[in-house]
Design a protein around this nucleic acid. Structure first.
Lengths: 138, 138
DNA sequence: AAAATTATGCAACTTTGTTGCATTTAAATA
DNA sequence: TATTTAAATGCAACAAAGTTGCATAATTTT
């Protein structure tokens, strides 16, 4: 068990429980974004649906994970690479979703461009999701 | 009843029914993107949930509407402005969602930028959704 | 106007997400 | 380390969202 999992939880003032550790480990292992369903089915020990929802919500609030709005409108969650402050995400990267294998990843090196909006609009956040073929599938 | 509603349906080889006309009219009137729930509640005559789902699906297939992947992961649908060919959308515009009033619109004049991906990735579609304050709310 | 085709609505169901509460587990304190 | 305190979990019950098959109704074709 990776030691820094516990550290990450401690740093965010979260008590260290089996479900939180396992779900975090799953994110670290997979390296890509996970849907709620993935988490429920892929964790070795089965946790209640409610527990998974609440854990994801807690991780969201602490800035440990962020959501990705995919073109097929399934909710996916991914680890925040640089440690986001509580509530203040600064994951200004592009997301990619493969139309063949379905894998969804953060392209940490690809930054979201600035979008100039018409007069009157105020930008708070810009989400860019590119879909197509990933390295493995193309 | 706007006359071109029937024309639009005819052009797409769809039989002209009350539900299709009313749902199309709703899109034209509102001018912004609608969630499934909006459609069910805002149409004067009530249509079965299944009918609404199937109508939206049909409109999607014909390229009459397109979906918008919003940051809060609710599915919203909007009319395609220029007439998309069946299956081939060319709505390369940015979407905007207001965090205050929730209204979601197509910014037809704001084009999505080209995103350069790392080697091996192949782009098929790029979705850009900006959230913030709309004209009315800012 | 009748036949053929297509769309609708209903019922029943699955999946997804939520809430309150009792129980269990982890953290804090003595 | 044992005990208290606080928080997380799981269960049950529910609400909302989405799907499928089939009979009925409406539209289109002949």
């Amino acid at each position: 068990m990776e030691p820094h999992i516990a550290d990450l939880l401690r740093k965010n003032q979260l008590s260290i429980t089996a479900s939180r550790r396992n779900i975090l480990e799953l994110f670290l292992q997979s390296g890509s974004a996970l849907a709620h369903h993935d988490i429920e089915s892929k964790t070795e020990e089965k946790y209640d649906r409610v527990t998974v929802y609440r854990t994801l919500q807690t991780f969201m609030e602490k800035g440990i994970i962020h959501t990705i709005p995919t073109p097929d409108n399934s909710i996916k969650y991914a680890l925040c690479k640089d440690n986001c402050e509580e509530g203040h995400h600064h994951d200004d990267h592009v997301h990619f979703m493969c139309t063949k294998c379905g894998i969804t990843t953060c392209l940490e090196d690809v930054h979201v461009p600035e979008i100039k909006l018409p007069r009157g609009y105020k930008t708070r956040q810009t989400e860019v999701v590119v879909s197509g073929l990933c390295k493995a599938c193309s």
